[in-house]
Design a protein around this nucleic acid. Structure first.
Length: 411
RNA sequence: CGGGCUGUAGUGUAAUGGUAGCACGAGACUUUUGGGAAGUUUUAGUCCGAGUUCGAGUCUCGGCAGCCCGACCA
């Protein structure tokens, strides 16, 4: 990608209505743009990151046996009335058709769609377990959208729904899913900060589990056992004031962002829709369900909250919009262009700063702000040595290496 | 949803009820090119609607929006 054609340019100024680190950096660097509170456009750089995160999640869900589907965002009122959530779910967007006066909801979550979907087909114990997931835009009428892309009214969400013949089978899968979730957080670069956390399960199960990423800008408070890497949400600390694993009492209070949440739903949603399967003895039984949510856009914001410095974002390699930020300076632009072509032929993802009439300092400042993992500079200085300069975004000092070494390094 | 704060250009600010101005940014041109370079030039604003007034950015009323705290968050 040529930076001279990249939309949009970076911003020098901080937008006046953004306070959170993720929103300021992502807006200044040209990854996102706010339309209104809690609603953002993903610009070319931002969309690349979002898609990478989504693909990491997608692959892991496929590893977990998930089959990807895409359900509608527009839902009929009847389905939500069946579960009582037309009234009770306060974040549900509800609206009326101007023509027919029919009422609809915009999907905040998809139990009300996926359960009747599965119910359209006769289920036998032989068809279970079944795992369906989607990555889709969710709508929530948040009373207070805030913190950039961490709490939006419209956001990207992966939701997987599991269908089982028994609670034992659900529990087995539920535990397995925790491992898949941690694998995702490790891959996207927030594994060290992310804790499996006990949370309230509501009325239908004792606990649900959250995945909480520790950062001072988090809006949740959790208590963590560093040794076991387990957390407990403040909301249930009164009933559980020791580490559930090692029973230690010296828990640390931390601020954290909820990046995932999994629930053993059991029959909470299969019952209202009469979702049953035929057991081996031919009798119909309630399907046992679990659901597993994770927000790619919130994960993206969390990564920025965790990985940044005073100059800008520091993307982990797996989610960076590009692997290499190639910068051509002054009269070396033609040589830089040759290297760009070579890197492309080696299938290296590279953003090439081919802009002329831009000072070196400004290019470096932009590179630091955008946060691509490897910065490669081609200039008269490096050409004299017959080398190129490479610097990791996370490190201070650059070094000179040959083009061959570069290809080994970033290829 | 309760409470608070704030709305003048992209950002930061100025204008006693009396010509909406300045700086930075952004665009164009020229000269520059290893940490946000310089010159010339252009651009862009009173959140919306009523009211008071000869006259409203400024006063009054209503709305809307944004931010913060809290509550909420399958």
């Amino acid at each position: 990608m040529l930076q001279s054609t990249l939309f949009p340019k970076t911003l020098r100024d901080t937008p006046k209505d953004e306070i959170s680190t993720n929103a300021i950096l992502l807006t200044r660097a040209g990854f996102i743009n706010k339309l209104m509170a809690g609603v953002y456009t993903y610009l070319p750089l931002g969309l690349r990151v979002l898609k990478k995160i989504e693909n990491i999640i997608r692959k892991e869900m496929e590893q977990a046996g998930g089959q990807e589907i895409l359900m509608p965002s527009l839902h009929p009122k009847e389905n939500w009335e069946k579960t009582g959530r037309w009234e009770s779910l306060d974040v549900l967007f509800r609206f009326v058709s101007h023509y027919t006066k029919t009422e609809y909801a915009l999907g905040s979550t998809h139990e009300e769609v996926v359960v009747p979907l599965v119910g359209n087909f006769s289920l036998s114990y032989k068809n279970l377990p079944l795992y369906l997931f989607q990555i889709q835009t969710k709508f929530r009428d948040e009373k207070r959208a805030k913190a950039g892309i961490l709490r939006g009214r419209e956001f990207s969400m992966k939701d997987l729904y599991s269908f089982h013949t028994s609670e034992e089978d659900l529990n087995k899968y539920y535990e397995k899913m925790k491992g898949h979730y941690m694998q995702i957080f490790n891959t996207v670069g927030i594994g060290d900060e992310t804790f499996e956390t006990f949370a309230s399960g509501g009325s239908f199960s004792k606990y649900s589990h959250e995945f909480q990423t520790i950062t001072d800008s988090g809006e949740d408070t959790i208590y963590v056992c560093e040794k076991c890497k387990i957390g407990i949400n403040k909301e249930i600390i009164n009933e559980q004031n020791t580490c559930p694993k090692c029973e230690a009492k010296d828990l640390q209070e931390k601020k954290a962002i909820e990046v995932g949440n999994i629930f053993p739903l059991k029959t909470k949603y299969s019952e209202p829709f009469s979702l049953k399967f035929k057991a081996e003895d031919g009798t119909p039984k309630d399907v046992i369900m679990g659901c597993y949510g994770m927000g790619p856009s919130r994960v993206m914001g969390t990564i920025v909250e965790v990985h940044n410095d005073e100059r800008g974002i520091i993307w982990p390699e797996a989610v960076a919009p590009f692997r290499v930020h190639l910068i051509g300076l002054g009269n070396a632009m033609a040589d830089a262009h040759k290297l760009y072509t070579k890197l492309l032929s080696e299938k290296v993802e590279v953003l090439f700063d081919d802009r002329t009439e831009i000072s070196a300092g400004e290019k470096f400042a932009d590179a630091d702000l955008i946060g691509i993992p490897y910065r490669v500079v081609v200039s008269e200085k490096t050409l004299k040595e017959n080398k190129v300069e490479i610097k990791k975004r996370s490190e201070k000092e650059p070094k000179l290496i040959s083009e061959e070494e570069l290809l080994n390094y970033v290829g």
